[in-house]
Computed example of a mutant assay.
Amino acid sequence: MASSDEPQSLRALFEAAESKREDVYNAPIATSPQYAADLSAALKLYAQAVAQISAVSLFSANEGIEDVATTALPYLLVDFYIAELVQRTPHLAPKQRLQVLAQSRSAYERFLSLVDGYGLVKGSYGKLLERYRDDEDGFAVVAGADMAAKREGKIANFKAEKALREKLQVLKRNPRYLEHGDEELVRDVHLTSIEFAIHNTFQALDSLNRELPLLRSAPSPTTAPQSSGDDPADTSFRLDQPLGRMRPGGGGPILGPKGEPLQPFTIVGSRADMARGVFRPGHNLPTMSIDEYLEEERKRGGIIEGGGTEPPRRQVDEDDMEAVDMETYKARHWDDFKDDNRKGSGNTLNMG
């Protein structure tokens, strides 16, 4: 058994990385500590594999794909797997996410450059690669503003992905592949896997370019205005504060000495009615309840306390003959007036 100081073979490193990658893809919760540990371990193993691939000069720009051994074909996918894993890194802020996407983009580009050097980016994927190199930040799999064309392009992408997935499934179910490990069939499986990865790379770069503008326009946590709710003593954000604080002007008398309004206000039935009607469509937020209005009137002196009874009549001193004669004269004058003027005869506005 090899000692812990002995470097692992490339095959063993790759298999260990593949195992960790499967753990990451199958994790039920992407924010769990185990997910982060598996993701970190997978990336570390793939990085070690890249170092060994470079050390032994496994791939060369001077050879064609037919010169690459069948057992070496899976290693062409290392940068693609790194790009996917990096893109799955949990993020906490837009700035961190931007860094993650930049690292992921670099890994995708290394993968495309490697497989393109072997002539594996061909057909429609070759055209996509040309467009990407012409405008990396503005690249989209389906270009143009024509909605019908975009829809057709999305359908074509879906059909291409489905065809590649089904082809892989058929190849891997073949008994020659499962039982005998037929080299020609195994090679076909690896090349189809690479083609599938090329397809997914362009989809990922498209998605990445749609996400970047949103992240760049997101407010920075350090410059975002502090929420009023951060200060326990600040209750200005509360919806249940006293009605007086919700009036324009924030306080002061509502009515003047003569009853003229000094501030705008709205009268409502009660606080309970106000609470029930807050979310009613077209509701204007009230600023004063009936109770508060009456209290303002009482302070101003516009309410007669203890009302409901007639004011007491002035008592006449019976010994004061002049005062008695004056009261008698006023009573007779009032009786004569009522005899000469029928009740309601002066009402010219309401003739009823």
Rank of each mutant, 00 (worst) to 15 (best):
A2H: 14
I155N: 08
E166I: 08
R165D: 09
P311V: 11
H180D: 13
G229Q: 15
L349W: 09
D38C: 06
E327D: 02
R105P: 00
D336K: 12
R332A: 12
P175V: 02
G64D: 04
V100P: 05
Y125E: 13
V142M: 04
G302K: 10
L239G: 13
A27K: 07
E136K: 13
Q96H: 14
R298K: 13
D336Q: 09
V142Y: 06
T89P: 07
D135K: 11
Q96A: 11
A224N: 11
V56W: 06
R21F: 10
S113P: 03
M147Y: 06
Q103D: 14
S104G: 00
M274N: 09
I304R: 12
L45V: 04
R238W: 00
Q48P: 03
G251P: 00
E318L: 15
A47E: 09
Q8G: 08
L215K: 07
R110F: 02
P219L: 01
S207E: 15
L262P: 06
E310H: 08
R187K: 03
A83R: 00
G123C: 00
S345L: 06
R165S: 11
P221L: 03
A41Q: 09
L73A: 04
D135H: 06
L129F: 03
N200I: 04
D320T: 05
L178H: 07
T287M: 11
F111E: 01
G302M: 14
E161G: 15
T89Q: 05
R210K: 14
P7C: 03
L215I: 04
Q34R: 11
T223W: 06
Q241S: 12
L77G: 12
S236Y: 02
L205T: 02
H91T: 15
K258T: 10
E295N: 14
M246G: 10
P219N: 03
R247E: 01
Q34C: 07
P312A: 13
Q226Y: 08
L185N: 05
I53N: 03
G250R: 06
R165C: 07
S9D: 09
K159Q: 14
P90Y: 02
A145N: 15
E195H: 12
E136N: 09
P232G: 01
S3A: 12
D231F: 04
L214N: 10
L208K: 00
E18R: 15
G344Y: 03
Y81N: 11
F202A: 02
R298M: 02
G252A: 01
T70H: 02
E322Y: 06
N284G: 12
E183N: 04
K150C: 07
T31E: 14
L212R: 15
I53Q: 05
K172Y: 03
S236L: 03
V324E: 01
I290R: 14
